[in-house]
Write a protein that binds this DNA or RNA. Structure first.
Length: 260
DNA sequence: ATGGCTGCTTTGAGCAGA
């Protein structure tokens, strides 16, 4: 089973890239973030023609998450459920969607960016991460086989940042963000990318500015975490950099996990 | 050097992303 995650930075613009990637890679599951579309604009028909069922929760301009699957999806959940939700504003920010696929709980998230460590958005990011962690703790009891895929907006370690010295204390790498990532790990989740040997300076996002991609000035902020029950089933994990080289690319590129 | 791109928005300067 092949699962992937990709922040497409507007599905309206990137749909051709997504369809090409589905055709070339034939994943069982592809999680998307930043669709930036209301549900009425979501391309259900084009994806169905490509062989994929889809569930989506979106909004205009910002956020928006989707799960595409070649298999049946059940138990679809929108957002961080029930009493674990962040606050009233979370109702408006479409950042999480989940489904059961082939007996696995697939959770797709677009974690808050946070903008700057001294901002209100950063405070919201930390609250959102706490709510996500609390919710996942109960999800894992119900669904021991769980995969958490998405744009985390956190580079977990210095080796996930192109220039750690220049970024010390900044957004994406600040100690509280990294501690929040470790709290997810402490639930019994594993960073699937690090279960395998990887090239140094492997990243999933590069700034559009300053020729970031060509100079490999990037960050690894898109992740696929797997629960204990799935750890031994992982057979490969990698980043596909090719879509970042396309005309009018997303600034993120797909991250992939293969399960036996 | 706090900009640099890109996408979006009651169309055009400003926000947000990371």
């Amino acid at each position: 089973m092949k699962l992937a995650t990709w922040n497409v930075n507007s599905l309206t613009v990137r749909l051709p890239h997504v369809l090409d990637w589905l055709r070339d890679h034939q994943p069982d599951v592809l999680c998307l973030q930043e669709t930036k579309q209301e549900d009425s604009k979501f391309p259900y028909v084009a994806l169905k023609e490509a062989g994929y069922n889809a569930v989506h929760v979106g909004q205009k301009t910002y956020n928006g998450v989707a799960i595409l699957s070649r298999h049946e999806m059940t138990d679809v959940t929108y957002g961080i459920a029930g009493s674990h939700s962040v606050d009233d504003s979370d109702v408006e920010q479409k950042r999480a969607i989940s489904a059961i696929i082939n007996g696995i709980r697939v959770v797709c998230v677009y974690i808050v960016n946070g903008q700057a460590v001294d901002s209100d958005k950063y405070q919201y990011k930390m609250r959102w991460l706490t709510a996500l962690t609390n919710w996942l703790e109960s999800e894992l009891i119900k669904y021991p086989k769980l995969v958490l895929l998405g744009d985390y907006n956190i580079a977990p370690e210095d080796r996930d940042c192109h220039d750690p010295a220049a970024w010390v204390g900044q957004i994406l790498v600040s100690p509280p963000e990294r501690q929040a990532f470790q709290k997810l790990i402490a639930l019994g989740l594993h960073d699937s990318f690090r279960l395998f040997d990887q090239a140094e300076k492997s990243f999933s996002w590069w700034d559009y500015r300053m020729m970031g991609f060509r100079r490999n000035f990037g960050m690894r902020i898109d992740h696929i975490l797997v629960s204990d029950a799935l750890k031994n089933s992982c057979t490969a994990a990698y980043i596909d950099k090719l879509p970042r080289k396309l005309e009018r690319p997303s600034d993120h590129t797909p991250v992939v996990l293969e399960l036996a």
